[in-house]
Each structure stands twice: as structure tokens, then as C-alpha cells.
Design a protein around this nucleic acid. Structure first.
Lengths: 232, 232
DNA sequence: GGGGGTATTATGTCTATACATAAAGCCATC
DNA sequence: GATGGCTTTATGTATAGACATAATACCCCC
């Protein structure tokens, strides 16, 4: 019995990955069926299934019933990034997080945004503007609107100490959303970020939805020099 | 027996997600054990395990042996993005992809990059510069170095028709790597992108590694107006 | 040869059972 | 009270067996 690795689905995963990387299983080729692999590696089919499923989710394999499993020709690998509290993000970068509320008012959401979000003109919202600091220096400018329909509690929440970002993470129902990064000039945020209005900066527009309703829309304008780092 | 949904791990997943979203299981709370849930929902423990594992991988639950499963207080949700062929990326945006090679030569990799990649000064590399088009308009400028140590075939490859991006996807062993997005001025790429050198643009620096050696380093400078879109 | 229905087959999933493993909590000891 | 080891327990994983499902491949018929 040829069993280089001990056992376990991870060992099968690694062995399959090795065969893909060494082109023992070249791109486009059909690989042995689960039963065959299980017999060869001395484990149950479920174990092989788990391993191959992970590789398929990572985009390295393509699986179809009856057709079998093939090595992806041009793998669409997925990059992952964790969306977390801004304070945590700053700590991860090895800096001391800070926070300063700029304004909390009832300024209306720009009509274009309201439309894109599917919010009616009569939906009450709260507007919060704040600055997050890293070691005392501006890190990111937050310009946010919260739907009071979805989050009535936001009307009375105190955002002077806890940021709206964190308040929502704690109080909003888990949800889905969209992220949209783009490069632009600092513009109005320049004054808060301590740079010129023409300086190129990264902007993140994020819309967040609950099970039913839109919850919040935020524009984060990062200070110059910001890098968005991801791993494959 | 209360079984709102048919059966299957996905049903269990959805039911658990519903309880999290409705705060029936509030943040920080410990949820019932796998055996209890299996009994309640009328399925096997393995089915519950699969469902809860997916939710944990999505960052909504935190699982620890003996301690049990808790709803995450501040969920670190992971945003996903698929890294694919540039041509495919352009097609996804509903445009006709185009490609034009600018230069393929032996220009040395900038020392700082070579260092960061862990490549020795004597490692031979090939340099490729190209422009990708969407409906005939500049989409992204590609400035790439390929290690001939890892990819000897790149020395003789013809990049006039197939881009280095695609060539590598087809010929390089699957691997891991890092992505680094930042905002900067168009600079040298401005001439190719048809914009001013001071225009803010998105830049992606990507390093790719094989099982052993670094394979390639590329700087992609996107045309103004580019948006990086992700979903949570 | 083309069209359509059917048998075959590889993956997808569920089940029940068993053992492995991490770690929380308890207890005895110092 | 602190410390170290032991017990308990919830999750992690493996297994064999079974059925579900999708879709290819084949065959029959026209």
C-alpha cells in the first residue's frame, strides 16, 4: 500500500494538490474517481470527497456529476479578505487605534445613493461622519448613512465614543453586502486626512443589507499610502 | 417535530442563519450542541456539523472543542473576489477584450522588488509590458517580470498573441501569492492609458509563488474609473 | 444520420457509529 | 491561593453503507 502521508482528508488534499502542482494531473485532465482514489490512498470515499470538494471550492478542480473531476484549465482562484472592525484593522497593522466623531446629524442621503440602495425618499436616515486614527494620524474618513427603518436604535445611539462602524457590527443583524473599491482624489475628505484635495486615495463604498431591508451605506476614504492586502 | 425546512445540511445552515439573523441566537451566545440540534431538527450530527462548519468558515460562528459553538460578537466576514484571466474579467464587465504587446525584453527587475520576492541578483528574468483593452479602450497596463528559473519556457514564449497573464495561468504550476491594491497617480502608465500622469488610478501589485520558487511579479495599472467589486 | 428516450455512472449527500483531540473545569496537592 | 494533573465533554474526523441526482453515453427507432 502506497501511503506517503498518514491519513485524514487534509493528507488527501495535500497529495491531490501535489499531483496538480507537479502536473502529474495536468490541467484539463480527468482525475481518478473518488472510489479509485479512496482505494489507492487507503481511506473512505467520504474522506476523498471532502478533500476534493475543498480543492474544487478553491477553484483548482472542476467537478460534475457523471462527468467526473478535472483539473481546471485556467483556475479562477479566489482571493479572500476579512472585513472587520476598523479599530481591529488598525491594530492588525501594528498601530494604536483612535477615533473622533466629526458630525452626527440628519443630513439626507444623496439621492443617487438612496436610489441605488432601494430606499424611498421618505425613509428616515441618520448621518454620521467620523475619522479613524492610527497612532494619532488620520487613517480613514468615514461618511455614513444609516436607515432608521432597519435600525431604529441608531437614532439615539451615541457615536462619540463607539464608532458607527462598531455599533452596527454589534447591533445590526448579520447580513450580506457589496464592497466597491476605487481610486480617486481626496476631495472633501482631504481636510480631515491632512492631504491635498488632488492627492490620490483609495475609496471604499460599502452597502450593507439585512434579511429584508438595506441597513447602511458608507464611504470610507483612506489616507494616502493605504494598501489593500490580500492572499490567494 | 418542528421541521420547517425539508432536510439536508443546507436547510440546517439556513435555519441556523435565520436564528442568528433574528437574534434568536444573539451575538456571543452559546448555541445548542450538535447532538441537541440534530435531535431537534431530525437529522444526523454529521449534517449539523457540516452546516455549522460552513457558518464558522463564513465567520458567523466561533467553534471550539469542549467550549462549544458561539455566535460571533463582531463577525469577521470574509469578502471574496475571483482572480481570473484579465480577458475573462473584461468579458464579465460586458466588453470585448483586446490585447497589445508593448515590449518583451530582458529589462532587469527593480532591485527592491527582486529583494522582496527573494530572488537572487543572478536569477535570469524576462520582462513583459502589455496593454489590455476593453472595447478598444485601454483597460489595464501590465508590467511583469517572470523568473526564468521557475519558468524556463517563458524565455521563448511568444507574448504577441497570448498575454503573459494567460500564458502563465496555463503553464505555471498552481501556487499561492499576494495581492496588494493601492491608489496612486498614473505616472509612466498614463501614456498607455490615455490619461494625465496626475490622474488617480488603481494599481495592483501581485507576487506569485510556486511550491518552491517565486514565479512572477506583476504591476497592473488600471485605467481611470476602474472599480474593484466584491461581495460579502 | 438524426432525434429522443433510457441505462449507466460519478458525484452529492445522509446516516449511524466510532474514535481522536482539545480544552474547560474540577480536584488534590503544595 | 497557586499549580499541576485528571476527568469530562463538545467538536473534529473517519468509516461503511445507502440513496439521490445529474448528465453523459448509448441504443433504438424513424
Amino acid at each position: 500500500m502506497t501511503r506517503a502521508t498518514p491519513t485524514g482528508w487534509q493528507a488527501v488534499h495535500d497529495e491531490a494538490l501535489r499531483r496538480i502542482q507537479t502536473r502529474e494531473w495536468p490541467p484539463g485532465a480527468r482525475i481518478p474517481g473518488e472510489e479509485d482514489l479512496a482505494a489507492e490512498l487507503g481511506c473512505a470515499r467520504a474522506t476523498v470527497n471532502r478533500a476534493l470538494r475543498e480543492l474544487a471550492e478553491a477553484g483548482l478542480l472542476e467537478r460534475r456529476r457523471k462527468a467526473g473531476t478535472r483539473v481546471a484549465e485556467t483556475p479562477n482562484r479566489r482571493a479572500q479578505m476579512s472585513i472587520s472592525r476598523i479599530a481591529e484593522e488598525i491594530e492588525t497593522r501594528g498601530a494604536r487605534p483612535g477615533y473622533a466623531l466629526i458630525a452626527a446629524d440628519d443630513a439626507p442621503m444623496p439621492p443617487a445613493r438612496r436610489h441605488a440602495l432601494g430606499l424611498g425618499a421618505d425613509t428616515p436616515t441618520r448621518h454620521v461622519e467620523a475619522l479613524h486614527l492610527a497612532d494619532g494620524a488620520p487613517y480613514v474618513h468615514e461618511d455614513r448613512w444609516i436607515s432608521l427603518l432597519a435600525m431604529p436604535g441608531a437614532a439615539n445611539a451615541d457615536f462619540t465614543v463607539m464608532s458607527a462602524n462598531e455599533w452596527l457590527l454589534r447591533h445590526a443583524p448579520f447580513s450580506h453586502g457589496t464592497l466597491d473599491y476605487s481610486a480617486t482624489t481626496a476631495g472633501d475628505a482631504a481636510a480631515h486626512l491632512g492631504c491635498d484635495t488632488q492627492t490620490p486615495v483609495m475609496v471604499l463604498d460599502r452597502a450593507t443589507f439585512g434579511p429584508d431591508h438595506p441597513i447602511t451605506w458608507v464611504r470610507l476614504t483612506y489616507a494616502p499610502g493605504f494598501h489593500l492586502h490580500m492572499k490567494i
